[in-house]
Design a protein around this nucleic acid. Structure first.
Lengths: 346, 346
DNA sequence: TTGTAAGCGTTATCAT
DNA sequence: ATGATAACGCTTACAA
């Protein structure tokens, strides 16, 4: 059995109050007492029980990060930054993946049984905003939404300007002279905001460049995975006229699309230029290296942790929205060979 | 303020005992009572406080997964499988990354302050075995070691046969006629077991194939990252005689190595064949697709969770070792083009 | 079958 | 500056 505060108090011949004071670094403790207590702690190898402390204080010191799939590079890179940012302010991070399962997202937001072992949730959701709000309504768990959803003033929000990011990517393709620009990542069946916004940016940029918006160029992808990108790109190759560029709604889709183009005997970017969004490290070393719109995940992580901390401190404060910066990074998949890998970001 | 058991009891006009029975699904509760209680629960929107429950029962229902870096694909894919496997038996997973920081690993194992908010640790360590044992000694936190360390009978262990895996990779290179086989991933300065074992397998396979073991072919890599692979491969290209194959101790190293070879104006596998270890999805879509030794992460995850559950149930049971299977997967980076991507595993 | 009450290990309130 | 003691919200003997 591990030693408790009482055991220490007994051995040191002081009250539990004093031991607690020493442990939690209370100022007004005499040097003599402190020594006695520390000696007893040492001897008993005492460690405070965080659960008891939590029950008393109401703080677990843990955050939950909820993402669709942790093994998607964008999310694992985000997770790395979130864990680091959280560690800096004394939080640890529990990760949950919903696996594109709305039901699992729902349960999480409802705070079912042991879900509540953390002080707040950083949520990168699949479900649409309104559903989400309804679900989370009754529980008062601090919540910060990550990603690209519309700000509705009810929840803290760390987003990126999706429309603009998509717009920038497509404008780049137009600027290098591409005229038949397809897209992969629309999701006509569902009402996810991300694909809707990116589609909007895509179409706006096309119009701005004086290019035609062809419905047959806007293809769907269920999961933003490499294999979805591969499949969608393969299908696009037999559309007539064949696209000369593909804008993918994620880098992972783009990795699959690039491979598909080469498997069809064509070349990137000569025959078809490809650009993604996210700036995952994989794309920087790929062949050709992937042009993309870089999202500032360290910034997102830092802001998310800052927002959730503030929310935990004060649940009544008005909801805030912060928009993370993004920037276009042109590499070989649009510009052609000759630009080596860039191990550094950017 | 959220409702407590007492509030529910009061409203339902029953004792807390009865409410608790209903909540935790105790059998012997009359239908009438159960109804009354459920109605009150509904009305008050009551949710059990998991912290209080934990303080009482000693179980948090959480596991910690400790890895060097969550954004390394091998670890994020492992994390995905661990989270899923844990969810199946009612556990949730907290992830911590040590970032190659021995001190952080140490603190985790020592169970410092709020570290102990979980029932057990799944630990994929950097530090050597003996150090680790000394550190963990005093705390009795259930622990299962993941990865490729020697079994010493004191801790549960889910490992792979590192020597054999490396051997298989190198034998494959020899079998396709390569004679100047280099390696990337040794770490002469530190005593990590993984690189030592893989180096052993590498050298054994060379000898078995009647090939010379050249020290200048065994290069180091600090972090098994893409950029380390890139740098090491670049260096290898100016060794004379130039290698005609490179065995990388991880797929990520291999991704960097492949890019380096092409940047040097050479070709994979024509000039230099490349093989890795891990079988991350990235390698299946890369160009050329990456030959590798596939580690069965779902198996590892399942066994790890099984072991830690057993250990939590019975801390006195003898330590067990489980060896996860591996198998060689030859793709384009050793066999040449013509084998399309394999979205499915293998 | 259900009620009463004693903890689980802290922190925090009230004294002194 | 320190001691005694009441919570925190739950589970579980022990009683009834």
């Amino acid at each position: 059995m591990p030693a408790t505060l009482r055991d220490v108090a007994e051995l040191a011949q002081v009250s539990v109050r004093t031991v607690s004071n020493v442990v939690s670094g209370y100022e007004h403790v005499s040097e003599r007492m402190r020594r006695k207590v520390l000696r007893a702690i040492e001897e008993l190898d005492y460690r405070p029980n965080p659960v008891a402390r939590t029950l008393r204080t109401g703080r677990t010191g843990m955050l939950a990060l909820v993402v669709p799939e942790i093994d998607v590079p964008y999310f694992s890179e985000l997770a790395r930054d979130v864990i680091d940012a959280a560690a800096e302010v004394g939080y640890r991070v529990m990760i949950d993946q919903t696996g594109h399962d709305h039901e699992r997202e729902r349960r999480l937001l409802l705070g079912d049984d042991r879900a509540m072992l953390f002080d707040g949730i950083l949520f990168s959701p699949l479900v649409t905003k309104s559903e989400l709000l309804d679900m989370h309504g009754s529980t008062r768990m601090p919540l910060v939404l990550l990603g690209e959803h519309e700000f509705d003033g009810r929840y803290d929000h760390v987003a990126i300007d999706n429309v603009q990011a998509a717009h920038d990517a497509v404008s780049h393709l137009a600027a290098i002279g591409r005229t038949r620009i397809a897209a992969i990542g629309a999701q006509p069946l569902e009402e996810y905001t991300t694909p809707l916004q990116r589609t909007a940016g895509y179409e706006a940029a096309l119009r701005e460049a004086g290019l035609e918006v062809r419905p047959e160029y806007a293809t769907a992808a269920a999961h933003y995975s490499r294999s979805d990108g591969y499949a969608a790109a393969t299908a696009l190759l037999s559309v007539s006229p064949r696209p000369d560029a593909i804008f993918c709604f994620s880098d992972l889709l783009a990795m699959g699309a690039v491979r598909a183009v080469f498997d069809a005997g064509l070349s990137v970017p000569e025959d078809i230029a490809v650009i993604g969004i996210d700036d995952i490290e994989e794309g920087r070393f790929a062949r050709p290296s992937l042009s993309t719109v870089s999202l500032d995940t360290p910034f997102i992580a830092r802001e998310a942790v800052r927002r959730i901390s503030a929310r935990i401190e004060n649940r009544e404060a008005p909801a805030a929205e912060v928009v993370a910066p993004h920037r276009l990074i042109a590499r070989e998949s649009t510009l052609g060979p000759g630009r080596g890998p860039a191990p550094e970001r950017g």
